[in-house]
Design a protein around this nucleic acid. Structure first.
Lengths: 337, 337
DNA sequence: TCTGCGTTTGACAGCGCTGTCTTACCGTTT
DNA sequence: AAACGGTAAGACAGCGCTGTCAAACGCAGA
């Protein structure tokens, strides 16, 4: 396994190693015929440039980092998938790191990381992307980064996002279109920006349709299965039960579903249920959950591509919005009678 | 951000860079006093060696790769967590790659990967770890690897695993200890080695307890939610319903649970249910599922540590068995009446 | 005191590439 | 035919570290 180096390619093509380097890096000033010869040599030798050598000699390392602190495996996995895909297409590699520390420790960790592995960019999913110390540390190290669905410091760095408010608005509209007029909403933690936006979208859609939303029709959950179950129990056992429940995320919707099953309340026959996120659990439950699909993988892909483009000197857009999708499954239907 | 190099440390400590290198690599032939001086300099400068330079100059790259093709986000995430933890403790970094191709394409991909980033080792979770082409490609490239829960070619390379048969045996024993005598088992695909082992453990425990297992008491599922639901329906609607159902994995157990809810069969009041895997869904369901916790993250950690030790020249054990755990939650209880 | 041998330390080359600078080349213009 | 300007290609240094080998050191015994 004597590794093939750029010298081998150069001598086979009958050019200097610098010319091979030019071809590989898509630099100008190479005659078309020469380029062909080089590429043919690269092909026949199956030559692949070594990233460590490139990183050491040049200004790019071809390494992207994905930092995360999100406890949800499904979410992280989707982010990874998107980021990995973008990296692969451009000859980059992805290093994944869990960043659970905060404050000074976080800053130290980032600095240490960056001196050992000079990365070309960092992808920051929520909620990590909202940590001020992190942004500061990255800025100090001059490492480019792109944030995914950030909620603060929006002018500080490029980011990709989706419109939570609009998504909740459209889901609510969909439920109304089925004939529901008494719809309850289970909100997430008020300090969670996306959660607040979703509630906003729900309220706007109800108001616009001229439908009242009583105070007991908005319950405060915590984005967890358990909190969903609690809020669900409250709503489902009330004397005047809503005909539809829209939970601010899938975990809470699944909580509601568990309670409904226990209370022998048929979904969607008696009560319609909708969630938000299209988490893996949404399909592994019966009935399968009507929900909003967030383009999580796509956001990560876009973020990574932004970073890669920036490495080439292309300045991309400051922010990029991606589209959600309303996924209608079996948990929603027209109201009873 | 003028990066701090080994030269800075060397001149501060008043030694040559080679001596600093020796200290950093725990090489012998450095006087204790010298080592202290060097370490103090490293500390005060917050110096971190650069992995690219190390990889280029030396025989180690400090990069581990995790290849996977497992579609389950939860499983992959646990593997990652374990592997990342081990890497972090030893100054290694983890590159994650999804390897969906097969045959010659897989071999090519591995070869290309290894020439661009010369990794110190590869972690192979199932089912990827059972692909003969992959092992061949890795062997050809002379890249060390450790497999997690492999089922074939066990003598080919080190691996970590857990005893599926024993785990199923103990879970069955636990169900018996609750008073269940008529227990049904939903098996996984027969060609899936772990699935076969679990069935084996179930049968052994039943036989040893002198309990009969009728032919209809072992249903063949496919490790999926849907197949679990189908088998569950068969078992639960039969005239002579078993008092307990042990599903070969959690997904199938959740399928059974969904059907039971729909049929208004109380779990665990009427029928006890147990799964296997302790997947994320097991806790996000009501009642929470009694199951077997596989030490997935621990297996990945051990695998990574084996690889790191091998890089230092230590030859570890050929195989390492880790312990499972029976997790008793709310889906199991004494038989009715 | 000197020799001999093991231990500690350093000089130096070079890993495989890219950045910078220089030279060779080729077609135009005067 | 000479001079020019721009493009194509190469020479060379060096990125930050480790491996090899040689030198210096220190302590034993003669």
């Amino acid at each position: 396994m004597a590794a093939i180096t750029i010298d081998d390619v150069a001598s086979l093509a009958g050019v200097s190693i610098k010319t091979v380097s030019r071809v590989l890096n898509h630099e100008p000033h190479v005659r078309a015929a020469t380029r062909e010869r080089v590429l043919a040599a690269v092909d026949s030798l199956k030559y692949r440039p070594n990233v460590s050598a490139r990183a050491l000699a040049g200004s790019r390392s071809y390494l992207m980092a994905l930092f995360f602190d999100n406890p949800s495996p499904g979410y992280v996995h989707q982010i990874e998938t998107g980021a990995m895909g973008a990296c692969r297409n451009s000859g980059y590699y992805l290093i994944v790191e869990e960043m659970l520390e905060s404050g000074v420790e976080l800053e130290r960790r980032v600095a240490a990381f960056n001196s050992t592995v000079r990365m070309d960019g960092v992808i920051l999913p929520p909620p990590l992307c909202d940590r001020t110390e992190l942004l500061a540390a990255l800025d100090a190290e001059k490492v480019p980064y792109v944030r995914i669905a950030p909620t603060t410091h929006l002018d500080r760095a490029p980011y990709v996002f989706m419109d939570d408010r609009q998504a909740a608005y459209e889901m609510t509209t969909y439920l109304q279109s089925l004939g529901h007029r008494d719809i309850a909403f289970i909100a997430g933690p008020p300090d969670h920006t996306a959660a607040a936006r979703r509630l906003e979208g729900f309220r706007d859609a109800m108001e616009q349709a001229g439908l009242p939303v009583g105070p007991d029709r908005v319950q405060n959950g915590a984005f967890s299965f358990l909190s969903g179950a609690e809020c669900g129990e409250l709503l489902l056992t009330a004397a005047d039960r809503p005909s539809a429940i829209f939970a601010g995320n899938d975990d809470m919707a699944l909580g509601v579903m568990a309670v409904a099953n226990r209370l022998h309340i048929d979904i969607p026959g008696t009560v319609t249920l909708a969630g938000f996120d299209d988490s893996p659990g949404a399909q592994v439950v019966w009935p399968q959950l009507t929900t909003v699909r967030q383009p999580v993988a796509d956001m990560a892909r876009e973020a990574t591509e932004l970073l890669i483009a920036a490495g080439r000197g292309d300045v991309g857009p400051k922010a990029r919005r991606l589209d959600f999708e309303i996924i209608v499954r079996q948990s929603s239907g027209p109201p009873a009678r």
